[in-house]
């Protein structure tokens, strides 16, 4: 479904589906979409933010409710489900994180469930929500926050900040600098080489985290859009159903990988050499 004023072509259809609803401030006050094309950095993808925050609140509200009513007696089905998730994340943290930090396990749980929910939006048929939005006068709407590079980068840069913070907190500034300069070749003449290598390694962590999640979900979404754009309506299910079933695996796996790597990176940050 193209935005108003655009011709309905395959290219236009795909382009429309890959465009975020944007918001920015111009001299005319708060503006949306077309008016924000030149706003530069201070542009907000309000659809991504809205769905991300909405799903995050949904997740925390549901888990909070369970936590308030949780008893040591016979648990309800949802409490069981939540406890399985909590124990699963707790087990992963115990196995992979060598150190004591009360932040890591809740961080892992938040990442796993939140990223999973954001990925899950990928399984909503591609036209349902955007089409309804167009009918309500919202020309662009992307409902899968993790197909927005800004969202995945926002997550991975936060993780990066934690990595740097804990590296310095555990090893001290000098320890952190030593780690960057005296590895892998422990010789003063090779300090510049070490620094370049270690910095690339460090920077690669958040970048790879963000790009892996974004790439998987963006590609998955694009394939759904292509199926919807290129096949007649009565044949779409033959492609989209297998892809959706396969995609269930992908979205869980990507959420898990993001959580797992976050835990591993933070564990590495806690290790003193």
């Amino acid at each position: 479904m193209a935005a108003q004023g655009e011709e309905l072509t395959v290219q236009g259809y795909i382009q429309h589906h890959l465009t975020n609803a944007t918001m920015c401030t111009t001299e005319n006050g708060i503006s949306f979409n077309y008016a924000c094309q030149d706003a530069g950095f201070w542009t907000w993808h309000i659809d991504s933010l809205l769905f991300a925050v909405g799903l995050g609140v949904l997740f925390l509200w549901a888990f909070y409710k369970v936590g308030q009513k949780a008893t040591a007696g016979v648990p309800g089905k949802f409490q069981c489900f939540v406890e399985i998730l909590v124990e699963f994340v707790d087990g992963v943290v115990r196995d992979s994180f060598h150190g004591r930090n009360a932040l890591i396990a809740p961080l892992g749980l938040t990442i796993f469930v939140w990223v999973f929910l954001m990925n899950l939006m990928d399984l909503v048929p591609v036209d349902f929500v955007p089409h309804a939005a167009v009918l309500m006068g919202i020309p662009y709407l992307k409902i899968v926050p993790t197909t927005d590079l800004n969202m995945t980068l926002g997550l991975s840069l936060s993780v990066f900040a934690l990595i740097v913070y804990y590296s310095i907190k555990v090893k001290g500034v000098s320890g952190f600098v030593k780690e960057l300069t005296l590895q892998p070749f422990n010789h003063w003449a090779l300090i510049p080489v070490n620094f370049v290598l270690e910095t690339v390694t460090l920077i690669a962590k958040p970048i790879s985290l963000a790009l892996r999640l974004f790439g998987n979900l963006y590609a998955g979404e694009l394939i759904f859009i292509l199926i919807a754009a290129l096949l007649p309506w009565w044949a779409q299910w033959s492609m989209s159903l297998p892809w959706a079933i396969f995609h269930i695996l992908v979205i869980v796996l990507q959420a898990f990988i993001f959580m797992m790597l976050t835990i591993v990176y933070l564990s590495m940050a806690h290790e003193d050499h």
Binding site: F41, P145, L153
Partner: peptide
């Protein structure tokens, strides 16, 4: 890349 990143 834009301010959405900060919001996230």
């Amino acid at each position: 890349i834009n301010a959405t990143l900060l919001g996230q």
